[in-house]
Amino acid sequence: MKRILLALLAMVFMVPTAHAVSKAEDIATTIILRGHACPGRTVNNIAESMDASGNKTIQATCSNGVRYQLNVSADGRVSVQRLN
């Protein structure tokens, strides 16, 4: 019984990590897709904000220290801007 529980616990921890794309990876991929360099394909220091008209702004720093701003308009257009 104990071994079955251990096996189930291992399954629970392993399967989601194998499938899901983290937000940091998602943002980094978007930055790369817009032609900017983001080594390691991950970001940190993520800050999000949304204005009254539904435009979303996300700021994140790549592993090389460069900070980017992602602008997602209300109609779903995505643009990336380098901040430093």
């Binding site: 998602d26 943002i27 978007t30 992602l70 997602v72």
Partner: peptide, 17 residues
């Protein structure tokens, strides 16, 4: 699909549009 995230999907959609 779970292979790509929401922002990546939006970026791809923008490119297609």
């Amino acid at each position: 699909t779970d292979a790509i995230g929401v922002f990546t999907k939006l970026a791809i959609r923008s490119d297609i549009v």
